[in-house]
Amino acid sequence: MTTQDTLRAPLDVVRAHPLCAETPVPQLQHAVTPPESVYVRSNFETPAAHDGWTLEVRGAVERPLSLALGELSLLPPHTVLVTMECAGNWRLGMTPVPEGEPWQYGAVSTTRWSGVPLSALLAQAGVSGDAIEVLAIGADAGPRSDAEGLVRFERALPLDMALHPDTLVATHMDGVPLTPEHGAPLRLIVPGWYGMASVKWLAALEVRTSPFTGYFQTKRYVYHTDTGTTPVSRALVKSMIVSPAPDSACAAETEVRGWAWSGHGAITRVQVAVNGTWHEATLGTADSAYAWTPFTLAVALPTDLVELRSRATDASGATQPDTIVWNSLGYGNNAVRAIHVVVR
């Protein structure tokens, strides 16, 4: 059975091998994304899971660990509801379009993840006093055109985030064991960060006393600027309108609905523009500290083709930019996005 065959409901496939697929527009209206429509991002083909899978905890620790799946299941479980977004989401909105997967805007989903807090495993191992980060090592690997040999998917996480009580080694999504395309049997979940930090098919955790400089830390999932290269980390403040749907027809008396999220703090404000005129939207309550916040605006739309835009602000004071901040790899596009509807 191929990876694509394991999908149980519609996804908008961007690439079949390795599988990259977006949450379809209708499914983006759900507060919690249906599990079969949670977006998928794979850098390499899905590795085969097996009964003898173990998780190694090594490096700058007092007691290296090798944990079987059964041992992990005996530890106290923890669940978090998280909005997760691919760092390359809406790459197609950039001009010129940078290299990378041609994501539209559906590489974002909200779902429940359950597993063991990473901090509990690190406590068992005993982290060295001079540790600065934890390297998450996936079992997936493959060739890259700009690297020699096989490249493994590995990403480092600062120690404070690794020790955060809601950073998980997840075994379940939406109450059932992880499926292959979502990282079975183990994946990391890092709330508030772009999806590349939530390493799938987790095989090892290496506590480090020096910065990791591997491929996916310094050549991909980085922002290239005039002053240097910075690894992609927390999700930038962003919003999207989900109703009315883009390019749909709607009545003049309409409630505009959408979601706003940020890895830098709670959403404090959303504005909706109708043909360029901004209105204050009403904020709902997020279902968790890491889930998107609903917003609504009841408005009378003019008859004809109407442009709608949304703009969010988070607790850090950051607001979505009106224009796209272009970068060569197409990450972190959180600019205000326009949709168009026909009002009848």
Rank of each mutant, 00 (worst) to 15 (best):
V176C: 09
N89E: 07
L72Q: 02
D140K: 02
G142A: 13
D174K: 05
E62D: 13
D130N: 14
V108F: 04
A107Y: 03
L163R: 15
E99Q: 13
V127N: 02
E154K: 14
L178S: 03
R155E: 05
A60W: 04
T110D: 02
D130R: 13
L67R: 01
T167W: 00
P98A: 10
V190Q: 03
D140V: 06
A125F: 07
A136V: 07
H78Y: 13
L159E: 02
D140E: 15
L178K: 01
P191E: 11
P177Q: 12
L92F: 05
I132P: 02
P117Y: 01
P185K: 06
S119C: 12
P165Q: 05
A123Y: 06
M173Y: 03
D130H: 14
L92N: 11
W193V: 04
T111I: 06
S109N: 10
V176M: 12
Q124K: 13
A68T: 15
V169P: 00
S73E: 15
L121Q: 05
L122E: 02
G149S: 08
D166A: 09
V57F: 04
L74W: 05
L122M: 08
P64Q: 10
R152Y: 15
A120R: 15
R112Q: 13
V116W: 00
W103D: 01
I137L: 14
P165W: 04
A139F: 00
A162L: 06
L81F: 09
S109H: 05
S119M: 10
H172V: 08
G129D: 14
W103P: 00
A136P: 07
L72F: 11
T167L: 03
T179V: 15
C86E: 03
W193D: 04
P180R: 10
L135M: 09
L69C: 12
T79M: 07
E56I: 07
S119P: 05
E181Q: 14
V108Q: 02
L178C: 09
L75E: 07
V169A: 05
Y105C: 07
C86I: 05
W90K: 08
P96Y: 13
P191Y: 03
E133F: 04
A68R: 14
A125G: 08
D130K: 10
V176F: 11
V108L: 13
G100K: 11
G175P: 01
L72Y: 11
R187G: 08
I189A: 11
A136M: 12
S114V: 07
A107V: 06
